Simulated assay, not measured.
Amino acid sequence: MTREDLRAGLASLGVAAGDLVMVHASLRKLGLGRAAFGPGGAEALLDALDEAIGPDGTLMMVLGTDYPMDWVYDHPLEARAALLEGSPAFDYRNAPVLEEVGWLAEAFRRRPGTIVSDNPSGRFGARRRRAKRLMADQPWHDYYGPGSPLEKLCQWGGKILRLGANPDTVTALHYAEYLADLPDKKTVRWDYVVAGADGVARHVWIDCLDDAEGIVHCEGEDYFASILKAYLALGRHREGLVGSARAELIDAADIVAFGARWMERNLAAPA
């Protein structure tokens, strides 16, 4: 498989010059994992994506953070400041991505020209024309909600590109959780040490909807996967083959609006 093969697959799917695209991908399913492709699979895909959107397009990925002190979340809120005391300050530019997000996101973060947002929990990366505006002014609390890069993705006509990604992998649906009219949504607090403008390290925290376990207790399949399956059944997306993977190109605003309505119908407690 060559970069040209990937580029042809993306073009057939509908990825075009000037597009704003949020990417979720499995290198293994694309045939770009180390076992099948050798080293450089992530770079080959990112080269193809850069070429597909051109200089006027924008790529975006969710990064998260591999935070070595996240064991403090097993402790009560009132104990966390003392547990974090003396730990290194979070460095949003250089901290590795959340391990479960995968190597492609880490390669994207390291790629020259990628801009990274400064929120340790809701960290995104973006590159090309609208990257700075997309990453600017991300809320500290509720980092996936109003004012977030996810809201901008929807407002600016962005698309979600899924390349062999797991069915529960549609980060934009976290924005739908904020839009859904549901009572008693579960919330969570994340604690960090960050360096202030004066360089002094301080304990801080972030309040947001529970993006780890979900905004409501839900038995069975992850509800993001259920939403994606229901949405794809409508046929409002484009699909095809990129590399060795089944791929979908989805209008971000459309699936977010659909997801919010789905949550209201299916996650509300019985009257």
Rank of each mutant, 00 (worst) to 15 (best):
M60Q: 07
K152D: 12
A269R: 15
T2P: 11
D70W: 00
P96M: 11
R129C: 10
R128T: 03
G41E: 00
E151P: 03
S148A: 15
L228N: 05
G145F: 07
P55M: 01
A81S: 15
A247P: 05
E177R: 06
P112M: 07
G64F: 04
I206T: 12
L45Q: 05
A95M: 01
V216T: 11
L249Y: 03
A48P: 02
A89K: 01
G199A: 13
K159T: 06
I215S: 04
D91L: 05
V101W: 00
E221G: 12
D168N: 15
W140D: 01
L241Q: 15
Q138E: 10
P183S: 13
Y178F: 13
A245T: 04
P120A: 14
I215N: 02
P146Y: 11
P76L: 06
D19Q: 13
G235R: 08
G145P: 10
A16S: 13
A253Q: 14
K229R: 15
E43M: 09
K132P: 01
I255N: 02
G54A: 13
P76I: 06
L46Y: 09
A233I: 06
R265Y: 07
D251T: 08
F90C: 00
A180S: 14
A180F: 05
A52F: 02
A257V: 11
D91Y: 04
A176C: 14
D56F: 05
R3W: 00
G86E: 13
V170E: 06
S12K: 15
P88N: 12
G33R: 05
K186V: 04
V194F: 03
E213M: 12
P88C: 13
L10K: 04
G40Y: 07
A230P: 11
A136G: 06
L153C: 04
